[in-house]
């Protein structure tokens, strides 16, 4: 709307001073406009196409060949790379680990973060400080956070010492070496790192919930919990759905933290699709196979994204506010 208006005003102005004398003027203006568009959007497009789209397409092409990265692409073997990946128990396990993190994040991290945001969404001393502190783990790089936890969790390390100090010494485990425990350990570290982001997001979403509604409900005799359950949380819906989307995509593409803390081990117990890809694509130089893994990773994320957008996010476009309250 704005644009159309601007456009007409713009051309009216340029045509104004010279009424009929120069008929070449409009086309010159148009050419100038096109030149401007090209100059402004060109550089970003070149960088983006060259370093994002082309590599993604190339990955799809490489995935069709058996290739070690040297020499021409000749050994076409589709669909062997894909079959090999999908029948490798380690890779299937890796997909399972990604899904494990996806589900745990949605089921545990989300509700905990919402609960904490609801609790903290009030006037209190040190609120700004609290927000800064909650956000610290999110700002640290995965490498630093991961190495710190690796140090803390080593056998008989500080974390075990802390457990014995509070009388839970018997609960000590080989946090990073026991394959039954390690995925939960990773989930804990990821929660520590990312829950602050969720809380800040929800607190920001809560700012958009009008106070009048809860005041009105309180006057009508609604309890704190009833207000949260029937007014605040539904109104927080869009924020929750966006957070869930970001969380799912992040969990599916998980790499850094795993690579730093366990490297996918022990014996593949924490391997994810991305660590599996780096392992084969880079460490073993199987570029064709690694690319097939990358494509599978992309397709899995894409399916999640499309399904989620189709069935969940769509509601945000169609008056979620009135639906949520009503």
């Amino acid at each position: 709307m704005t644009l159309t208006r601007t456009e007409t005003v713009g051309s009216a102005v340029s045509a104004g001073p010279t009424p009929a004398g120069r008929s070449a003027r409009p086309s010159r203006a148009r050419r100038r406009k096109h030149l401007e568009i090209a100059l402004f959007v060109g550089p970003a497009t070149i960088v983006y196409v060259g370093f994002v789209l082309v590599p993604v397409v190339l990955a799809a092409v490489y995935s069709l060949y058996k290739w070690n990265g040297f020499g021409p692409l000749t050994d076409f073997n589709f669909p062997d790379n894909y079959i090999r990946a999908l029948t490798d128990p380690v890779f299937v396990g890796a997909i399972g680990h990604n899904l494990f993190i996806v589900v745990l994040s949605l089921v545990i991290q989300g509700p905990v973060a919402i609960g904490l945001a609801l609790l903290l969404n009030r006037r209190m001393r040190g609120r700004t400080l609290l927000r800064v502190v909650i956000f610290i783990p999110y700002v640290l790089s995965e490498v630093i956070a991961g190495l710190s936890w690796k140090l803390l969790l080593q056998p008989d390390g500080p974390f075990d010492a802390f457990l014995s100090a509070i009388g839970l010494g018997g609960m000590s485990k080989l946090w990073l070496a026991d394959s039954d425990v390690v995925l939960w350990t990773m989930f804990w570290i990821l929660t520590w790192k990312y829950i602050g982001f969720a809380i800040i997001l929800f607190l920001a979403g809560l700012q958009g919930v009008p106070e009048e509604l809860s005041e009105a409900a309180a006057i009508d005799g609604a309890s704190w919990w009833q207000i949260q359950r029937h007014i605040t949380i539904p109104l927080l819906g869009p924020t929750i759905r966006i957070w869930a989307f970001l969380s799912i995509i992040g969990s599916l593409q998980l790499f850094d933290m795993i690579w730093v803390v366990t490297g996918g081990g022990p014996a593949g117990a924490t391997a994810t699709m991305a660590t599996y890809m780096v392992q084969f694509g880079f460490q073993r130089n199987q570029l064709g196979f690694g690319s097939a893994v990358a494509v599978i990773l992309f397709i899995v994320s894409l399916i999640f994204a499309l399904v989620y957008q189709r069935f969940v996010l769509r509601r945000d476009l169609a008056g979620s506010l009135t639906q949520g309250v009503g």
Partner: peptide
């Protein structure tokens, strides 16, 4: 659409490029 392409997917070809 670029939001759908994580750097993970492109990293092998990117390396060669």
């Amino acid at each position: 659409a670029g939001l759908l392409f994580p750097i993970t997917v492109a990293i092998l070809p990117l390396y060669l490029m």
